[in-house]
Amino acid sequence: MLANYLTRSLLVVFLISLFGLAGCAQPIEPWVKPYERQNLADPIMRTNRHPIANMHVAHVYEARESARGSEVTGGGGCGCN
């Protein structure tokens, strides 16, 4: 059930993006031009603005919760007996 749901949703995302990638041959072109990205490039928009703090946050949660994965900080081996 879950596997079906995930496969379907990821397939949709994949296909939409693939159409986007085919922009060289198709009329779909990147719709946000480089000069329109100053807001997104602002340092306050960086999710990894404080990488050393994010690594600690991820470690605190991984040691106390069962969920793991899909964080941006890497991982492998907890060392939290």
Binding site: S17, G20, L21, P30, P34
Partner: peptide, 11 residues
């Protein structure tokens, strides 16, 4: 890890 920018760096 490998990461790659594409589609006019939108993706």
């Amino acid at each position: 890890n490998v990461s790659h920018d594409t589609f006019g760096d939108l993706t």
